[in-house]
């Protein structure tokens, strides 16, 4: 049976067809027409905070020297923390005390260099280096219950490995900054300190691996990773300083840390203060 169709009826199909035509026409007209109104802002919900940009900063000799000073203060603070733990044997404690005194002397030597380069002395630790590297490393050794970090099962070894890593980082920093420092005499002054840090690292490597076995590079047979070496190669390395510390896992491994020399986002710029 055929049902008659009323051609004049405004059925659902026709409604949709005419509605679509109207929308398309409106879009074409809007695109072709000129409008005096130009959108100046997008609608939004709520208030957007105003932002203040950082001051313009340049990497000058003074900034690099201030950053080096901040790293010296990191080392001073780290050695203070290490000594306060009271874990090191007396022989290692005397080394730590000596090296801490050396870092204080380095910081003192940097102050007149910074002033001569036109900067203000920076006599405190580099917050970012502490936050990124030293704090987490110390937590891996001492443990932190609130963060679920267990204490190391070899804290004395780990403290020495951390100190060795920090000395290598300091040595690499001075070496790297030579390529950025503009004044030749300042480069020489920087490496006078940098070579001291390298000697510190050499001494610590031989405390960690004694009897002459820590002089040349070697591999830890258990972990397959490089052991600390007093003389790790023919040239000072600018690669990241890597070492493993913390509680030994069931697989026999420790947490590996990787330290990079302070770069653009951790420099002690002129606008930064202690």
């Amino acid at each position: 049976m055929n049902i008659p169709v009323n051609d004049n009826a405004f059925n659902r199909r026709k409604f949709l067809q005419s509605g679509g035509l109207a929308l398309a026409s409106a879009a074409i007209l809007a695109a072709c027409g000129k409008s005096d109104k130009v959108a100046t802002s997008y609608p939004r919900i709520g208030e957007s905070p105003t932002t203040t940009g950082l001051p313009t900063a340049h990497v000058t000799d003074a900034v690099l020297l201030r950053t080096a000073s901040s790293l010296e203060w990191c080392a001073i603070d780290a050695y203070t923390a290490v000594a306060a733990l009271g874990l090191l044997p007396s022989a290692a404690t005397s080394v730590v005390k000596r090296f801490q005194a050396d870092h204080k002397a380095h910081a003192a030597a940097l102050t007149p260099l910074i002033k001569k380069a036109g900067g203000e002395p920076f006599e405190c630790a580099n917050e970012r280096i502490n936050e990124l590297y030293i704090g987490p490393a110390v937590e891996l050794i001492t443990g932190n219950e609130s963060k679920g970090i267990p204490a190391s099962d070899t804290p004395v070894d780990d403290l020495l490995v951390l100190a060795h890593g920090l000395e290598n980082l300091a040595a690499a920093t001075y070496q790297y900054y030579v390529s950025l420092i503009a004044t030749p005499a300042v480069r020489g002054a920087a490496m006078t300190i940098g070579q001291d840090e390298a000697r510190h690292a050499a001494v610590l490597a031989q405390v960690i691996i004694p009897d002459g076995k820590g002089i040349a590079p070697s591999i830890n047979e258990t972990t397959g990773k490089p052991n600390p070496a007093a003389v790790p190669g023919a040239f000072g390395s600018l690669a990241a300083v890597t070492f493993s510390i913390g509680k030994t896992s069931e697989a026999g491994t420790k947490t590996q840390l990787s330290l990079d020399t302070p770069s653009l986002n951790s420099l002690a710029y002129e606008y930064a203060s202690c």
Binding site: Q175, S179, Q195, V203, A230, V231
Partner: peptide
């Protein structure tokens, strides 16, 4: 830069 990369190694060698 090259001389700066030689200095720390020779310092380490002196220490050893």
């Amino acid at each position: 830069s090259l001389v700066a990369s030689i200095i720390p190694i020779e310092a380490r060698q002196a220490a050893v």
